[in-house]
Design a protein around this nucleic acid. Structure first.
Length: 283
DNA sequence: CCTCAGATGCACT
DNA sequence: GTGCATCTGAGGA
């Protein structure tokens, strides 16, 4: 039946990008400017590290390969590794026959037993967090602050999971806008730039998706898409943790794509570290 | 760009 | 009863 191939909606980060760059004028300060621009990534699906000059990889956007992520994908990475590996991948949601998809641009790792910020700290296992202990690839959706939900994917390691924090909506923008509050519809970058925003955007609910297996679920899965250059991944402390997390609140377990406009909250200091590491790799 | 307050209901102790 | 892995809008720099 009417399966639409993604067409023009497949192209993210285009036009307006230039505009915002022009606005931020400092064309003399080359390095800063270059990073704000989307040096988004990439060597699509090719593993050989592009030993090329990173500058040449600016804005090479490739459309999704439509290859669903397998169990093996979720199993072969550590929790932290999975959090990074998920960057660039697509979350796909089928709603009444319409395909919605969005690129993952920000994640957080929750390690489980030893992680004081994790719901499964010390192996704590309750009806709520049962999904964290299920097969890698299982969705863990929980409600928070009454009116919101957060979406995680269970990873390897008992009680470990990856929280999705921000997406770039690629397909189904109109439908996504309909699912979000009116005030947020003006700017496409803000459609899914937060853990609960992205759940609203793709209509992910606890009743509908908690404990669903994304490897077999017919209306929710992940697809291979972009491979993010490791040099472009910013590692920063996680967001919103209370004092009970103690030293775990400072560990760099949040990951996002450097320069991507849809990231929920930037950490300039960690971005500087990322850039410094990158330039020293080049020289 | 930033910070701040209030909303909100459920899971757990 | 307490504590959230948050969001929005308003107001200020």
């Amino acid at each position: 039946m009417n399966r639409k191939r993604p067409s023009q909606q497949d192209i993210p980060l285009s036009g307006k990008q230039d505009e915002s760059i022009k606005k931020s004028k400092e064309s003399s300060v080359e390095s800063d400017n270059a990073d704000n621009k989307a040096d988004i990534v990439v060597s699509s699906n090719s593993k050989g590290h592009g030993s090329e000059d990173p500058r040449s990889s600016v804005q090479s956007i490739v459309s999704g390969s439509s290859v669903k992520l397998s169990r093996d994908f979720y199993t072969r990475h550590s929790c932290e590794g999975l959090a990074k590996a998920l960057l660039g991948k697509r979350l796909v949601r089928l709603m009444e026959g319409t395909r919605l998809s969005a690129r993952i641009v920000e994640t957080e790792a929750y390690l489980g037993f030893e992680d004081k910020a994790s719901h499964s700290y010390k192996g704590r296992r309750t009806p709520r967090n049962e999904a964290m202990f299920m097969e890698p690839g299982t969705a863990y959706v929980y409600s928070i602050y009454g009116c919101y939900v957060c979406f995680n994917i269970s990873s390897q390691g008992s009680g470990a999971a990856v929280l999705l924090r921000a997406l770039e909506v690629l397909e189904g923008v109109e439908q996504v806008k309909a699912a979000r509050p009116a005030s947020t519809k003006a700017n496409d970058k803000h459609l899914a730039n937060g853990p609960s925003k992205l759940c609203q955007a793709l209509s992910l609910t606890k009743d509908g998706h908690n404990q669903r297996d994304t490897v077999t679920c017919p209306d929710l899965w992940l697809e291979d898409d972009l491979d993010i250059d490791p040099d472009m991944i910013v590692a920063a402390p996680r967001i919103g943790l209370g004092p009970s997390a103690e030293e775990w609140g400072d560990k760099p377990l949040r990951f996002y794509v450097l320069g991507h406009p849809c990231v929920s909250k930037r950490n300039r200091q960690c971005e500087d570290v990322c850039r410094a590491a990158r330039t020293s790799n080049i020289t």
